[in-house]
Design a binder for these strands. Structure first.
Lengths: 236, 236
DNA sequence: CGATGACCAATTATCAAATCTGGTCACGAG
DNA sequence: CTCGTGACCAGATTTGATAATTGGTCATCG
């Protein structure tokens, strides 16, 4: 089978898995049903993904990749997008607009079930943490973030703030009336007030940083792409 | 039975319930065992608390009351304690230092189980929300908090930030090395940066506000006290 | 050579019997 | 008379043995 046909079939499998997960939740979706919906035999699924877990992890990764590409494009279009509050806002909106990612971030155990707590997710989260670590290192070097908190404390605070914005909604049972955009704006304001310095950053500096930061993103992107599809038979 | 003896017995029941909940978790604790540990008969428990749920709710409320009194005392001792970042810090340390409250705030379903999601807790949370609403109203009137976010957005952000600091720990599986104090400091810094205005507030203003705010606290305190014990027989 | 579905071990769903427990209340102690 | 108690009951929960499902493999076939 040609590599392009192989990849196309992999996409069909991922499409099927994504649809079924959204419809019935992770726990209820069987490999058999995914195969059926993709119009192939069950064994064929295993030519693409070593285990059930790997398949659904790939679904999540593929969804994340879309958001990733959006981030890169946005920074390329406007380097000011690399500022923490702009990124936080964009990620928030991007996650909330993708049902699978939203389920993962809000620990929606009904849709994603155990998958969200699996070890394989941990590696992704860890890599993402490393990325933001390097990213804030860069921003700090160039005087774009505050230093009133030391680095571990600042990272911790950033993690806590974002965790909070992703998890608070289900807990405030209808007690607030903020639409998606307002919540994203609130998050952006908080992040800006907490970690960014006052004043408008130098556009030249931003442009220079943009390329470096995009390089970081691309690096992680490659790791993630590798995680989506297996290799075609005979190729390994 | 004298009222004081009645109340003392109620405390013994609460002590027993608290100890057993911490030892075995909400789900596994039976009224029978609570009664046995308190050295009384099972029926007697029901002279104090209408239902099992009410009993454990009272345990939680009693624990909260301790923290509440600490808050009031702190503001009385130093009116600057009424500033949001000081309060957030104190509440955080107070909650983390009380196993039952910590379990509730961190949604530790192993210890508290379903109780944390019960409706009766919701009323408490709602009252607490009302309190913070009025509290921030007061602070706003006197120019102590920012207005770069409108009130609903600011309340939402505050809720999200605090939610985050209470929930992020179990998610960052050992990936950070911040002790309790540092985390509390980080929370305080975030809150100050996000909702307080720059500069040192006028001590006279703080003193004047302190009494009003303490009045608010006392008001909620009374509601909570009423929720701890039932009334002695013949008294109702 | 790649795709497939029959096949297997192991997990998970089912369901009735047995056990437990929240809540009541008739009774007995004082 | 009042207050405390534990036997009692209905409903919920656990148990355990059985049946059904399903992740993953691989001999077979096109």
């Amino acid at each position: 089978m040609s590599e392009s046909r192989y990849l196309e079939r992999g996409e069909r499998i991922l499409d099927a898995a994504a649809e079924l997960v959204l419809r019935w939740g992770y726990r209820r979706v069987t490999i058999d049903e995914v195969a059926k919906l993709a119009g192939i035999g069950k064994g064929t699924v295993y030519l693409h993904f070593k285990t059930r877990e790997a398949l659904f992890l790939a679904v999540l990764i593929r969804d994340s990749l879309g958001l990733f590409d959006q981030m890169i494009a946005a920074i390329q279009a406007d380097p000011a997008e690399l500022l923490p509050h702009r990124q936080a806002r964009r990620v928030y909106l991007g996650v909330m607009g993708r049902p699978l990612l939203r389920a993962m971030f809000s620990r929606d155990s009904d849709v994603l079930g155990a998958l969200a707590h699996e070890t394989s997710i941990a590696r992704l989260t860890e890599m993402k943490l490393d990325l933001t670590g390097e990213l804030y290192g860069l921003l700090r070097e160039h005087g774009l973030v505050r230093t009133d908190l030391d680095i571990p404390a600042q990272q911790y605070a950033l993690g806590a703030i974002q965790t909070g914005f992703y998890l608070v909604d289900p807990m405030m049972a209808g007690k607030h009336e903020l639409d998606l955009e307002s919540r994203a704006d609130a998050l952006a304001t908080v992040i800006r007030n907490c970690v960014e310095v006052a004043g408008t950053p130098d556009p030249d500096l931003l442009r220079a940083l943009a390329s470096k930061i995009i390089a970081l993103f691309e690096q992680l992107r490659l790791v993630m792409v590798a995680g989506v599809h297996g290799t075609p038979p005979k190729g390994d």
